[in-house]
Computed example of a mutant assay.
Amino acid sequence: MDQVLVFDVNETLIDLESMNPLFERIFGDARVVREWFGQLITYSMTTTLSGRWTDFFALGQGVLGMLADVHGVEITPGDVDDVTEAMRTMPAHPDVEAGLTMLRDAGFRLVTLTNSPAVPGVPTPLEHAGLASYFERRFTVEAARAYKPAPQVYHLVTQGLGVPPSACLMVTCHVWDAVGAQSAGFSAGLITRRGNAPLPVAALPQPGFAAPDLPSLAGQIIEGRPG
């Protein structure tokens, strides 16, 4: 059976730090983008664990307002709109197309699994980044009304493609995503992008592959594929 590579999108494929100038303008400190994204992931998990649901962009707007209160900054409706638009239009990391081309040419099936919603009539972040054509399917968490790393989110891929979890390898720069995928029966590869690193805790599964960029990880995956 062909192996399916399941790609996270936000920060793994597209560049979160492209939003730095926007956060510098709003908060006077570009580093707040990391605080914002970390809180966004925390509260996406919170909505799932508490049995509630709202989409990722709405949650991002809410977290922005929360951080404005925390930092004592006044934000305008225009600032909120600018952050929402930036969430949809972040560019790809410069290494991504080369890595995707390597994996596609090696015969892997490529799909995505993202927290970002698909808005009818609005180009997706992948489309804005020029990456959509690499992927056979693009799965979003909306179908499960839960966020990663909930097991049912990863099952969207296996059910949608009709493959077992053992056929899937999650490619992500987030340890929490890798742990979730591995707990659902996937294997995992970790891209250690800036701000991300392995978590050396023995009780948690460790990714089978790890590299600082996608071409390096692709090389490991291609070399490590069963013959």
Rank of each mutant, 00 (worst) to 15 (best):
D2Q: 13
Q3A: 06
V4P: 01
V6M: 01
V6H: 03
D8A: 06
I14M: 01
E17F: 15
E17W: 10
N20C: 07
P21I: 08
L22T: 12
E24S: 14
R25I: 09
D29R: 13
W36V: 09
F37I: 12
F37H: 13
G38R: 15
G38V: 08
G38K: 13
S44F: 08
L49C: 07
G51Y: 07
F56A: 01
A58W: 00
L59T: 09
G60K: 05
L64H: 04
L64I: 09
G65Q: 13
M66N: 06
L67N: 11
A68E: 11
V70F: 13
E74W: 12
T84I: 15
M87T: 02
M87E: 00
M87N: 05
R88I: 02
M90W: 10
M90C: 09
V96H: 02
T101P: 00
M102R: 15
L103C: 05
D105T: 13
A106N: 10
F108M: 12
V111W: 10
T114Q: 09
P117R: 11
A118Q: 14
V119N: 03
P120Y: 10
V122I: 14
V122N: 01
L131V: 05
A132G: 12
R137L: 02
A146G: 11
Y147R: 04
P149A: 10
Q152M: 12
V153C: 14
Y154D: 08
V157C: 07
V163F: 09
P164R: 11
P165T: 14
C168E: 04
C168F: 05
V175T: 13
Q182G: 00
Q182N: 01
A184I: 12
S187E: 13
A188D: 07
N196F: 07
A197H: 12
P198A: 03
L199M: 09
V201F: 05
A203G: 08
A203L: 08
A203F: 01
A203Q: 06
L204H: 03
P207F: 01
G208P: 03
F209T: 00
A211P: 01
S216C: 04
L217W: 03
I222P: 03
E223V: 11
G224Q: 12
P226I: 04
